[in-house]
Design a protein around this nucleic acid. Structure first.
Length: 293
DNA sequence: CATGCCCCCTGCACGC
DNA sequence: TGCGTGCAGGGGGCAT
């Protein structure tokens, strides 16, 4: 489920509880998720103090004081839940919400501040890794990542340059993490709708003959940024199972213009179109054929 | 290099 | 109630 806004929401929710805390113990309830846990995963984390929580694309990064980074990817169904240990709960009046089916609690980080962080992931498409900070950029999953959509190096020039001569459709182009890092199925659909661009259009048409950004590609970057910022402000989108680590739900799903709205009227002001669902690269695309060209 | 397809895994909604 | 089918927010790996 988690695309960039959901991961960012998780990061922000965890930050106050995790910053400066020490990892007392890592409880592993299986030996792998999508991939095996790295060598000596538990012992390398034991006793470490958490120095920084950050995010790259859809990856949550937890940097330890000893300059090792815990990389967490939530896959499709991964969830991080923060809760108090029974001891702490009796002292304070903390409530902890719906931890999900405990049989899918695969990792529990026991922290020095009486909190625990539980990773639950029914489908196990997520994974964790632990590498020296220095090696992060060379990590297999990070090497080819494109720019952060909310960062300075993401521009229409970048998009146009990458789109040059590409016949692949805009949907696949934007879903490709090498183009821009962090968009997934929902936010690509939403961004294209905001930009008035058809997901079926070929990426190469973003450029004009003079290789300068067309007016369409100029609209695309702000559309992407806006939809991501709006979603982050709403605490992400809660579809089937996304919750913030404190159990609260995001509410951006109520603001979708096209995603999941097949057959419903287009939300664009004065557009009379109807949202359509098609399949591209084996995944659902929602768009308005009337206002998205 | 670019593209298209299959796969990993579980849960859930749906139709019969 | 039970069963089969298709679908789900990701992304690696492989053949072409």
């Amino acid at each position: 489920m988690p695309e960039l806004p959901e991961v960012e929401t998780v990061r922000r929710a965890l930050e106050p509880a995790l910053m400066g805390a020490r990892i007392n113990r890592v409880e592993l309830r299986r030996k792998n998720l999508r991939f095996p846990f790295p060598e000596k995963f538990q012992s390398r984390l034991k006793g470490r103090r958490i120095a920084l929580l950050s995010r790259r694309a859809k990856y949550l990064l937890i940097t330890m004081e000893n300059a090792e980074v815990l990389i967490i990817h939530l896959g499709m169904s991964g969830r991080l839940t923060l809760s108090c240990t029974p001891d702490a709960r009796s002292k304070q009046n903390n409530t902890t919400t719906d931890p999900g089916d405990p049989k899918h609690d695969h990792v529990v980080f026991h922290l020095s501040n009486q909190m625990k962080l539980t990773y639950n992931d029914p489908r196990r498409f997520g994974f964790m890794d632990l590498v020296p900070t220095q090696q992060l950029e060379n990590h297999k999953m990070f090497r080819a990542l494109g720019p952060e959509p909310l960062g300075n190096s993401f521009s229409s020039n970048h998009l146009v340059q990458r789109a040059q001569g590409r016949k692949t459709d805009l949907k696949a182009f934007l879903l490709d993490q090498r183009t821009v890092a962090g968009l997934g199925n929902i936010y690509v659909c939403e961004a294209l709708h905001r930009a008035g661009l058809s997901p079926r259009r070929s990426a190469g048409t973003l450029a004009t003959k003079r290789k300068t950004p067309s007016k369409w590609s100029a609209a695309l970057v702000p559309s992407i940024r806006d939809v991501l910022n709006d979603a982050i402000a709403a605490g992400g989108s809660s579809l089937k199972d996304f919750q913030k680590p404190d159990g609260a739900l995001g509410y951006f799903q109520h603001n979708f213009d096209v995603y999941g709205r097949e057959g419903k009227p287009c939300h664009r002001q004065s557009c009379t179109g109807t949202v359509r669902r098609i399949t591209q690269a084996g995944r659902s695309t929602f768009y308005c054929p009337r206002c998205q060209r």
